[in-house]
Computed example of a mutant assay.
Amino acid sequence: MTRVLVVDDQFLIRAGLVGVLNAAPGTEIVGEAGDGEEAVALAARTSPDVVLMDIRMPGMNGIEATEKILAQASDPAPKVLVLTTFDLDEYVYGALRAGASGFLLKDSGPERLLAAVAAVSGGDALFAPSVTRRLVEAFARQTGGAGVGGGGERPPDLATLTSREVEVLELIGRGLTNLEIADHLFISEATVKTHFNRTMSKLSLDSRAQAVVIAYETGLVTPGR
């Protein structure tokens, strides 16, 4: 059973999301929130598997709420799936930078919504990686490592990583799957996962999408290359 927290400041959109998810087998709605502060409090109380997070809300926006939810969560932390009206949205970039696992357009149909929830809850590497890379390429260079709408932290130093971990991070930034990375580096998929898990730990990352952002912001991957 996938436990979902739905966050959106518009009642009709929130109700529609809840209706679709409630009708899907294997999904349970553990709470609804109309703003970021309520979302943070509900996430702490209900420990959802997935948070559907509206990105632009009055008061605490989705970036700040994502940061707080992931910071306070016990292991395993919930997967945050950002809801947005525009695919090239600097606020969505900020949310991915803060640790969100992916994003979904609000005009997506029910099948797309359910597929996205299933993807992130099942530990899928990255939902819609090509779209996510396009978003990251659009904003990584212009932000210069400054967070959008969040704390403005600089990207981490990659000096703590081994040469192999750097290679894996670069290929993740280019959008390759673990299997593709394994084939490229002539190592097993399990070894790729080990290197990436160590990278996540060393750089204090919460999601693969966040790793893609870091790969661009540190210059490991160049937009358009």
Rank of each mutant, 00 (worst) to 15 (best):
L113S: 12
L113A: 14
N197C: 07
R112K: 12
F103V: 05
M60H: 04
V117I: 08
G16M: 11
I181V: 14
D89H: 14
F196I: 03
F196T: 01
A128L: 11
L17M: 10
L205H: 12
G144M: 10
R134S: 14
P110W: 00
T66S: 07
E64I: 15
K68A: 15
V168P: 00
R3W: 02
A73Q: 07
V92D: 12
G16E: 06
L171A: 02
S121T: 07
L135D: 01
Y91H: 11
L169T: 04
Q142F: 01
R112Q: 13
H195F: 07
N22A: 14
I172P: 03
L161V: 04
N178G: 15
D89W: 14
N22D: 14
I181L: 04
E38N: 06
Q10G: 05
L21W: 01
L169R: 04
N22S: 15
V18G: 09
G31S: 11
R225E: 15
D9A: 14
A159V: 11
S121V: 07
M200H: 03
L12D: 04
A128V: 13
E167H: 08
L176W: 09
E28G: 09
E137F: 06
S204G: 11
G94Y: 02
L12Y: 11
L21I: 05
A71Y: 05
F127W: 09
R174T: 09
E28D: 12
L88Y: 03
S207R: 08
A41P: 02
G145F: 02
G173Q: 02
G31L: 14
R45I: 00
L126W: 06
A115H: 05
A23V: 08
I181R: 05
A15G: 02
A115L: 09
D8H: 12
E153M: 08
A119Q: 02
R141Y: 04
A95Q: 09
S130M: 12
N178Q: 15
R208Y: 15
L205V: 09
F127K: 03
E90R: 10
V80D: 00
K79Q: 09
G62A: 08
D9R: 10
L135P: 02
V192P: 09
P156R: 00
L114Q: 15
G99Y: 09
F186Q: 14
R97E: 08
A33I: 01
G152A: 05
A190Q: 13
F103S: 01
A77N: 01
T46S: 11
D75I: 14
A43Q: 03
L81F: 00
T132C: 07
R225K: 10
V192A: 09
E165M: 13
G224N: 11
V6H: 03
A182K: 12
L88W: 01
G19I: 12
A125K: 11
V221T: 03
L81Y: 00
A190E: 11
F11M: 10
E64W: 08
A128I: 13
E217T: 08
